[in-house]
Amino acid sequence: MNLRWYHFAAWGALIAAMLLMPRLVDLGLMGRGTLRTMIQACYLAMFAISWDVLSGRTGYISFGHPFLIGIGAYGTAILSKKFGVPVELSIPLAVLITMIGGLVVLLPALRIKGSYFALVTLAFMELMYQLVQVIRPDLTGGTRGLSGIKTLTRGAENGYMLAVSLMLAVALGCWLLMRTRFGTALWALGQNEEAVSGSGLSTIRLKAMAFLVSAFVAGLAGAFLVHYNGSLAPRAMFDINSVFTIIVAALIGGAGTILGPVLGAFFLTFLLEWLRPFLPGAERFLVYGAVALVLYMYQPKGIYAIIEGGLKRLWGRA
C-alpha cells in the first residue's frame, strides 16, 4: 500500500479535527444547527464514497444509488418496526440484503458498457420508487413512507459522533482498499477494459467486487440514516435530485480519490445550507450546478486535486 508518514499525519489530523467538532459547540464557537448540518454532510459523504468506489474509477456511472441506499433504509426500517427485529440485527441484515439484492439485480447490467449501465441503474431507482408504493404498502408505508422508526441517538452531539465515526471508518477503509492492487485494477478498468481482460483479469469479477463494496457502504449509510431520522419518505429518497447531489459531491470533490467525495459532500451540504435563506426553493440546485461547473472548469479533478496541488507548492517552497 505504500503508506508514508504524511498519510498518517493527514488522517490523524482529519480524525482529530472531526471528533473535536462538538467541543467547538461547548465553547460557543459553533451552533448546534451547524452540527446537525455536519451530520447530513457525513451521510452524504458516505453515499458519495459508495458511488466513488463503483463509478469513480471504473467509469461505470451509477445513476441509481438511491436504489441501494433505499434497500438498506427500507430493510432495517421494516425489519425493526414491523417485525420487531432488534436494531443490532436489522442493520447488518439490511446491509446484507442490499449487497445480495443489488448484485442479483445489477450484475447483468455490469456486463453491458458505459451509458447503458447508467440508464439501467436509473430505471431501477424509479422502479423501486413505484414498487414500494404498491407492493405491500402495509409494510413499506406506501406513498407516505414510514415514521416512528427507532432512533439510535439523542441530541445533536451523539448523532454527530455516530455519523462521523461511521463516515471516518468507511472513508479510511475504502481509501486503504483503493490503495491496494485492487484499486489499481479498477483504475485500469476505467481506462481500457479490453486491456485489463488482455492482462489476464476477469473484468466482471472486478466490477462485481467494486459493486459489492459500494453496496455495502450504501446499505450501511442508508440504514443508519433511517435510524437517525426516525422516518423514511420515498419521494425524497428516490428523488433525481438526491442522485445528482451524490454524483456532484463525488465529482467536485475528486472522483476516484475517496477523500475527494468527502470534501465534496461537506462543501455541497454547507453551500446548500448557506444558500437556503436566499433561495428557499429548488433553484438552489441550479446554483450548485453552476458552482460545480465553474469548479470543474478550473480543476476537472476536483477539490482534492486543488488542495493536493496547494500542499505540494507549499511543500516545495518550504
Binding site: 492492487r181 489499481t184 485494477a185 483504475w187 485500469a188 481506462q191 481500457n192 479490453e194 486491456a195 485489463v196 488482455g198 492482462s199 489476464g200 483479469l201 476477469s202 469479477r205
Partner: peptide, 20 residues
C-alpha cells in the same frame, strides 16, 4: 498499443502481474 494512459509504467506492468 493499449496502455492504461493515466497510470504509471510501473502500474501498467503491475496490472499484468496481478493474479486473477
Amino acid at each position: 498499443p493499449r496502455p492504461f494512459p493515466e497510470i504509471t509504467v510501473a502500474e501498467n506492468i503491475r496490472v499484468g502481474l496481478m493474479p486473477d
